[in-house]
């Protein structure tokens, strides 16, 4: 049973990365929010599976928190910010080809870092026994950073932030035992993502590059 569950970890982690690519190439805001929802639910499923493998109740609680906070609350508040008349709200000038090619470079960078540092330098203990799985959280982290850097819409930047948080959680659930980082992450969820994002999204739709520098 647990071997089968471990086998499933890789495809699910791959799907999380695919959702990151989906969000990266998405122009429309609403599908992007839904992409975040799918990503968070996948993350919760992985957390449950880790709970089954290790018999650790903390992982199951974490999964429940992920579903409630990211799957429900954040999605609800972000979608609430979009008016009914703005269902086609989107960011202009999104070049998918360029974004995907750069994202691929980030994935390759993650692979290089994991293989050169984790495999030969730092000896981390991954639950699956295969440290290659650590590529996924690192690649997801880069995707989140790049999503923030490449977009001007506040929504997209918040999505990037959530992706980074997801990457940290994904990294942490592959390590044993679940570190303090996760608790900090949950706190950030409540404070930054739910409260601040719901305010910022309504207040300011886009963040232009020069506008912050004007007096």
């Amino acid at each position: 049973m647990s071997t089968f569950v471990e086998e499933l970890l890789f495809p699910l982690s791959s799907l999380i990365l695919v959702t990151a690519f989906y969000m990266q190439g998405q122009e429309f805001i609403r599908p992007m929010i839904r992409g975040q929802l799918v990503q968070s639910i996948l993350l919760a499923v992985i957390s449950v599976m880790m709970g089954i493998i290790t018999g650790d109740a903390a992982s199951i609680i974490l999964a429940a928190l992920l579903v409630v906070l990211r799957g429900f609350l954040i999605t609800y508040f972000l979608e609430k910010g979009i008016m009914k008349s703005q269902v086609h709200l989107h960011e202009k000038h999104v070049s998918v080809a360029y974004l995907f090619l750069i994202s691929l470079i980030f994935v390759l960078t993650a692979v290089l870092i994991v293989y050169s540092v984790v495999f030969s330098g730092i000896r981390t203990e991954s639950i699956t026994g295969n440290q290659g799985i650590l590529v996924f959280p690192l690649a997801l982290f880069f995707q989140g950073l790049f999503l923030i850097a490449s977009r001007r819409t506040t929504y997209a930047q918040i999505m990037g932030y959530i992706e980074e948080e997801n990457a940290i959680v994904l990294f942490a659930v592959f390590l044993l035992p679940i570190p303090l980082l996760i608790e900090a992450s949950v706190f950030l969820d409540v404070l930054a993502l739910v409260v601040i994002s719901s305010v910022v999204v309504v207040e300011k739709f886009t963040h232009e590059r020069v506008v912050e520098l004007r007096g």
Binding site: F10, V18, A97, L101, V107, V135
Partner: peptide, 21 residues
């Protein structure tokens, strides 16, 4: 171009996953 970039991304991801998984 976007369509082909997606196909290209899938193929490269596949290549990486073959190595990682």
């Amino acid at each position: 171009l976007d369509y082909l970039a997606t196909a290209f991304t899938f193929s490269i991801l596949f290549l990486i996953f073959t190595e990682v998984i």
